[in-house]
Write a protein that binds this DNA or RNA. Structure first.
Lengths: 210, 210
DNA sequence: GTCTATATCTCGATAGAC
DNA sequence: GTCTATCGAGATATAGAC
């Protein structure tokens, strides 16, 4: 799917407006202004606010999530997969801070559109990232590298501990201002922090712990 | 702070409306209907939608977050603190599924109100949950129970891995329908899952892992 | 405190010229 | 495709009776 320059401008303005103000709080006038065009033109392209919103969800899934998913196909074992997943995921979120805000609002609303798009994406890609994850996880268990845990529980934990920081960092800066002042550094440190906790938290434990 | 019966009814209707539809998507008419009163009465009590919204944020902080915080004061070491934190937190979220939706929308908007209330709460409580956390975490390090990690990073990871599931479970049900069909069971299992991963992920590692 | 009725206004959407 | 001008729905908020 290829978009015209004007469409791209509308998408990025709309993504920002929806992320910051929510679907209902966003104003078509603001979206048009930020895109440098007239409000009527936004309607000309997308007919209604609802359709524009749906188009933005699709845009986000196709542009960001599919890429993320594809980038993980080549990993060969669980340890590598986990490290790449965390690194790539955090890089994408750090570069596109509007993404998690936008998506979490859709999810809080029950994810009516996002769910459909993700279902389609999972079905369409021959081997989606999720299947790759399950495969490597099971291999890890078989080879004694990972404890026999519920892979769904683990998947949620991995994703959540990556994303949540980008949603809530303004809150956490209340306890540690360093988080905002040296955001890039803290974000980078987050990669190894998460890998260490998760990878070693998943490893089998010879019964030496109290 | 004590509220009248009518105020309580308005709060719970408003919390639901704001959580499901967002601040701008929520309708004063719906809030009044669900509370079983007239729309004008909502304005009589709270003057405007904006003020009602602020009051709901305050209500949530006072009613839910402060309690959660207080319940952790009595724990005596890091291991116990971590286990109680995860258990209590997940219990509260499971019982009040609107809370995370409501709060995450406020946070996505930059948390203008929530931040202020939390600052006040942290200042006011003699020993807040957060201070208790830092104390136990440092003790854990001193006693060789925990690796010398950044406590802020760890705090974010703990909170995020608890909350995120409650925000995103409708999405994860796409890969494992069991999550929705046996929600209570999955939620309960989540407690030990998280404790195991986090506690053992934080432990020192005698260099026997590959 | 609680209601009905109404004022006011914002915003999504369209008509129609260019 | 792009603009100006405008309509009309629907929402917040208030006035005023009880």
């Amino acid at each position: 799917m290829q978009y015209t320059e004007t469409e791209e401008k509308i998408f990025s303005s709309a993504l920002e407006a929806f992320a910051v103000h929510g679907k209902d709080g966003a104003r078509m006038q603001d979206i048009a202004n930020k895109a440098g065009i007239n409000k009527a033109l936004v309607h000309y392209y997308f007919r209604s606010k609802e359709r524009l919103y749906e188009a933005v969800v699709t845009y986000v899934v196709e542009r960001y999530i599919r890429n993320l998913s594809d980038s993980l196909q080549s990993e060969t074992n669980f340890k590598q997969f986990l490290r790449s997943f965390i690194t790539n995921y955090i890089d994408v979120l750090a570069l596109n801070p509007l993404l998690p805000k936008f998506l979490i609002r859709e999810i809080a609303a029950g994810a009516p559109i996002f769910k459909k798009k993700m279902e389609a994406m999972i079905r369409s890609s021959k081997g989606s990232m999720i299947q790759t994850y399950y495969k490597h996880f099971q291999e890890g268990i078989d080879q004694g590298e990972v404890r026999p845990l519920d892979p769904s529980q683990t998947f949620i934990t991995i994703i959540g501990s990556c994303i949540f920081f980008f949603l809530a960092h303004p809150m956490f800066a209340l306890l540690n201002p360093h988080i905002e002042k040296r955001f890039a550094k803290f974000t980078d440190e987050r990669k190894s922090h998460l890998f260490d906790i998760l990878y070693y938290g998943l490893q089998p434990r010879p019964e030496l712990q109290k």
